[in-house]
């Protein structure tokens, strides 16, 4: 059995203290395999973004353990590795907004993710171009983000997330700013990436029209994590 892309055990996140204490996530556990696309649903404030940002190592939990690619990285709020270096090497991120750096071209936005991970500029450029071609935005490689459509920007963001061949890709409502057709294309892209790049993908979404893309669906409710029965997942096309 291969190492899971991510394992979360008894994750708990509490904001504030005393009368203002809010439990955002209570004892959530999950395991996502490489090559698997998992959707995370739930109403606003249910804690799904909190668990995602905890897995992204940018929002430290109050307690619980997180293991990524077999490496224990967080024990409660205590970092067991250099979190920034770990993010650089093992994680990819896609957000509701593409969050491309406005003064870099599409190609450079992907290239920078490789260069910060010590890839030589020449190799980074080659690989970035390869990724943009793979995601069908190669012809727009030398355009600044402002000249790209929302869908194209999101594809570039996915290319950036894939740049360092991460074992885990975390996406926070990646289709919220897109129309249904482009939203579906992006979701299908995650499926393709998970299979072909052998990466685990966790997608936080409100978009119920694309649930068929997911291998599994987890639902957050009042800080707790429930796995939706497979019968509730729409059949894949």
């Amino acid at each position: 059995m291969s190492t899971p892309a991510v394992e979360v055990q008894n994750l708990r996140k509490v904001y504030g203290s005393g009368h203002t204490e809010v439990v955002a996530v209570r004892d959530a556990s999950l395991s996502i395999a490489r090559g698997e696309v998992v959707g995370m649903l739930g109403p606003s404030g249910s804690g799904k973004s909190t668990i995602l940002t905890a897995m992204a190592l940018i929002n430290l939990p109050t307690s619980g353990r997180i293991t990524i690619d077999g490496t224990p990285v967080l024990d409660g709020p205590k970092a067991l590795v250099d979190l920034r270096a770990f993010r650089r090497q093992h994680l990819g991120f896609v957000f509701q907004k593409a969050n491309l750096i406005p003064f870099l071209t599409a190609l450079e936005n992907v290239q920078i993710a490789l260069e910060v991970n010590d890839t030589s500029p020449r190799e980074a450029k080659r690989r970035a171009m390869e990724l943009l071609d793979y995601l069908d935005v190669g012809p727009r490689a030398h355009n600044l983000p402002v000249a790209l459509s929302g869908g194209e920007q999101q594809r570039v963001a996915v290319a950036r997330a894939l740049a360092n061949k991460p074992g885990l890709i975390l996406a926070d409502e990646p289709t919220a700013a897109l129309d249904s057709q482009r939203g579906r294309q992006v979701m299908e892209l995650f499926g393709k990436v998970a299979r072909e790049q052998n990466a685990g993908v966790v997608v936080v979404t409100h978009d119920h029209r694309t649930l068929d893309v997911f291998d599994r669906i987890l639902e957050m409710e009042d800080g707790g994590l429930i796995e939706r029965p497979s019968s509730q997942t729409q059949s894949k096309p």
Partner: peptide, 16 residues
């Protein structure tokens, strides 16, 4: 600020 936050998120070192 957002670009710097993004650079930190994707793991850019402080030196960058």
């Amino acid at each position: 600020v957002r670009d710097i936050a993004l650079l930190k998120l994707i793991g850019a070192r402080n030196g960058v």
